[in-house]
Simulated assay, not measured.
Amino acid sequence: MSLKIALTKGRVERKVIPLLERAGIDCEPLKNKKRKLIIQTNDGKLEFILAKGPDVTTYLNAGVVDVGIVGSDILEEQQNEQYELLDLEVGKCQFVLASTAVFDVNSPERKIIGTKYPIITKKYFESLGQDVEIVKIEGSVELAPLIGLADAIVDITETGTTLRENNLYVFDYLNKVSTRLVVNRMSLKQHSQEIFTLVDNLKKAVFEKNEVRGEKTR
């Protein structure tokens, strides 16, 4: 029986494939998937289900997959209830509070904040002792302060290029984000050997990648 892995498609998928290959997994079926959303490795040991990030935790919680590979931003926002076993240390970015130059984070006035992450945003402003109105946005969050929908935004950024190109400034840095490997609690009991073998191989791959780049492993 194949170990079922929900893999966040797109950017995370592209970042994770080299790690999977370094861990000894044949990723040719993933690389040549065309429009397939369910891809099995040639040895039949792994089955990848390509999904949007927020759906990965849904599949995990429902028990239809054993393992999820997804960003820590989604895990934090959805208040993940499954076991997080490994930081894959790819897809790194950071939450920021950003706005136009005239924004004053210390202003006593009640602020309107645009974000895809209302729970994370609420926790952040609570830590500052501020009560804010949160507007949930699914698209280009950067637009919100530019068109007057919000005073500022909380979003994730990798390089800050989009913020700079839209004349937005970072006023504070929040949590760092990276890709994590998460396991369904029941699957960990039923397929512990297969899961821990996968985790051990990926842990070695992360270490080797960091050694090559001269990075300090966690």
Rank of each mutant, 00 (worst) to 15 (best):
L3Y: 07
L3H: 04
I5Q: 02
I5Y: 01
I5A: 08
A6Q: 01
G10Y: 04
K15V: 07
V16L: 06
P18R: 04
L19V: 05
E21C: 06
R22P: 03
I25R: 00
E28Q: 12
P29S: 11
L37G: 12
I38E: 11
I39F: 09
Q40S: 14
T41D: 06
N42A: 13
D43E: 06
K45R: 14
K45Q: 12
L46K: 02
E47C: 09
K52L: 11
P54F: 07
V56F: 05
V64L: 10
V64F: 09
D66T: 06
D66N: 06
I74R: 00
I74F: 07
Q79L: 12
N80M: 07
Y83Q: 13
E84L: 10
L85E: 04
D87W: 02
L88N: 04
E89C: 12
K92I: 15
L97S: 03
A98N: 00
A101M: 11
V102P: 00
V102R: 10
V102I: 13
F103L: 11
S107W: 05
S107Q: 10
R110G: 01
R110E: 05
K111M: 14
I113R: 00
T115N: 01
K116M: 13
Y117G: 01
P118A: 14
P118M: 14
I119E: 12
I120C: 09
S127Y: 05
L128R: 08
L128Q: 10
L128M: 14
V132W: 03
V132G: 01
E133Y: 03
L143F: 11
G148N: 05
A152Y: 02
I153E: 04
V154Q: 00
I156C: 11
T157Q: 07
R164W: 08
E165K: 13
N166L: 15
L168W: 02
D172A: 15
Y173D: 10
N175I: 08
N175W: 05
V177Y: 03
S178H: 06
S178R: 05
T179A: 03
T179M: 02
L181I: 09
V183D: 02
V183E: 04
R185C: 09
M186F: 13
K189G: 06
K189W: 02
H191E: 13
S192C: 13
S192D: 09
S192Y: 08
S192E: 15
E194K: 10
E194Q: 15
I195V: 14
F196E: 15
T197K: 13
V199K: 09
D200T: 13
D200E: 15
L202C: 03
K204P: 02
E208P: 01
K209A: 15
V212T: 15
R213P: 00
R213V: 10
R213A: 15
E215V: 12
